[in-house]
Computed example of a mutant assay.
Amino acid sequence: MNDNDVPLTELPELSAIKQAALSYVTEAFAEAELDGLDADCMAQAALFAAFTELVTTYGEDAVAEYAATLADKIRSGAFSMAVSLKH
């Protein structure tokens, strides 16, 4: 297990770092929306940028393995809580 698999609440110092990073991303989405960009377009661009960075850092095989776990995480609601951060 790497630090990306640890829930934010289990490592307070990691939690603060990840929450700060999420704040930057959320702010970028808000700025883009003010400039008239569609949230769906931003989300797709953010995913592309994120996966590009992950592949650069960890390599294609590791990122592909991680991506394979996303369907279950999505279905279990892991990302549904993030919706409340936008409002």
Rank of each mutant, 00 (worst) to 15 (best):
I17T: 09
D5K: 02
S84N: 06
V25H: 01
K86E: 09
A21K: 07
T26P: 02
A71E: 15
A78V: 11
A30M: 05
A78F: 12
D72T: 09
F48G: 10
N2L: 14
L47G: 01
L54A: 10
G59N: 07
A62I: 13
A68N: 14
E31R: 00
E27K: 06
L34M: 02
A78H: 14
P12A: 01
F51A: 03
L22H: 08
A67M: 11
D5G: 00
A46P: 03
L34E: 08
R75T: 14
T69C: 07
A71F: 15
M42S: 00
D5Y: 06
S15Y: 04
D40L: 03
V83E: 13
R75V: 14
A20P: 01
M1Q: 00
M81V: 11
S76V: 08
L34C: 04
E60H: 11
K86Y: 10
A68S: 13
I74F: 08
A30G: 01
S84E: 12
E33L: 03
G59R: 06
M81D: 13
H87D: 14
D5N: 01
A16M: 05
M81T: 14
Y24Q: 10
L11P: 00
V25P: 02
L54S: 04
E60V: 12
L85F: 02
K86M: 11
S76M: 12
G77Q: 07
I74Q: 12
L85G: 08
L70N: 14
C41L: 06
S23R: 13
A21N: 06
D40Q: 11
E13P: 00
A39M: 12
E65G: 13
L34V: 02
F51I: 08
A78G: 13
L70M: 12
P12F: 02
A20K: 10
D40N: 03
L54Y: 13
C41T: 10
Q44L: 09
S15A: 09
V63K: 01
A20H: 04
